[in-house]
Amino acid sequence: MASTESASEAELPNLPATSWAVLGMLAFDEELSGYDLKKWADWSIKFFYWSPSFSQVYTELKKLEKHGFVTSRVQHDNGVRGRRLYKITEAGTDAVRKWSNEAPIDPPILKHGVMLRIWLGHLNKPDRLKDILREHIEYAEKMERRAAADERGAAEEPAWAYSRIVLRWSERYYASERALALQLIEDIDEAEATISRVKVGDEAGFTKSPPGLWREVERHVEAYKGDQD
């Protein structure tokens, strides 16, 4: 049985941020199924944090129910197989409020698959790199449109005002991704022109720096950083 001690009086359990994201969706105080929560995530937090699978949603719900932060019941309609609905508890509301206000905020971690390919551009062809960026531009444009549509939908409910401004931020974010990718297409020509002047390592099939050069560069960079402190 869950403890009656409020979250404000107790330490928060060591749950991952994804658990708090799911609990946060329930913090709008509506009874929802795992399917509902997945859809809600796709309409909101997908744009700036996480696009969960159904299995991930249900995994997080089990954790939250174990801690007494949500309750569940099976709803049966017309004899059809029932669906399980989840609702936040008072302890759950206290906990997610405490987490949102007091838990340390992790810095954003950027895992940009497109940039990883560009970083390895010396192993690729410039035309292929540009194709990758054009595909990314199409993706960014699609996400920008979807965020804009969901932002307009959020405007219909005053209680979603903060969700709305984050969706507006998401729209601007994907617009900037598009602009940065367009600039990077031009930058590829500059990088290729620079590499074409270097002959060391041509026997490997690609241009490479002399062995150990990175250590000298590191010393220069560290000295520069020291001057800036």
Results as ranks from 00 to 15, higher is better:
124 N>D: 15
133 L>F: 04
42 D>W: 00
123 L>W: 11
10 A>F: 02
55 S>L: 01
116 L>G: 06
212 G>M: 10
229 D>E: 11
70 V>C: 04
86 Y>K: 00
222 E>Y: 05
44 S>N: 10
14 N>M: 08
119 W>H: 05
116 L>Y: 14
189 D>H: 10
17 A>W: 11
206 F>W: 07
71 T>D: 13
10 A>R: 12
55 S>C: 04
71 T>C: 04
47 F>N: 02
17 A>Y: 12
162 Y>S: 13
127 D>S: 15
129 L>F: 01
45 I>F: 06
191 A>L: 12
166 V>T: 05
197 R>L: 08
207 T>L: 00
185 I>V: 15
11 E>C: 03
216 E>H: 08
97 R>M: 10
176 S>C: 11
125 K>T: 08
132 I>R: 03
93 T>N: 09
222 E>G: 02
129 L>M: 14
98 K>H: 08
133 L>P: 03
99 W>R: 13
155 A>D: 14
154 A>W: 03
93 T>P: 00
189 D>T: 13
184 L>C: 10
175 A>R: 07
32 L>E: 00
83 R>A: 03
149 A>V: 07
12 L>E: 04
60 E>Y: 03
151 E>G: 11
196 S>Y: 07
120 L>V: 05
197 R>A: 14
129 L>P: 02
112 H>E: 15
123 L>D: 07
27 A>Q: 08
11 E>A: 13
220 H>G: 15
67 H>V: 01
226 G>I: 03
173 Y>I: 09
55 S>M: 02
112 H>Q: 11
229 D>K: 15
210 P>E: 14
131 D>F: 06
53 S>R: 15
78 N>D: 14
33 S>M: 06
22 V>N: 00
170 S>Q: 01
221 V>T: 13
159 A>P: 03
163 S>W: 14
165 I>R: 15
165 I>M: 10
213 L>K: 05
214 W>S: 14
198 V>Y: 11
166 V>M: 11
69 F>H: 03
173 Y>M: 14
118 I>P: 00
2 A>G: 09
192 E>Y: 12
89 T>W: 06
174 Y>C: 01
45 I>Q: 03
150 D>C: 09
176 S>F: 03
13 P>E: 11
198 V>K: 05
31 E>R: 06
36 D>W: 07
219 R>P: 04
33 S>T: 14
15 L>I: 03
13 P>C: 09
204 A>K: 08
192 E>A: 15
41 A>L: 01
208 K>G: 01
199 K>C: 07
39 K>A: 06
100 S>R: 10
218 E>M: 15
2 A>L: 09
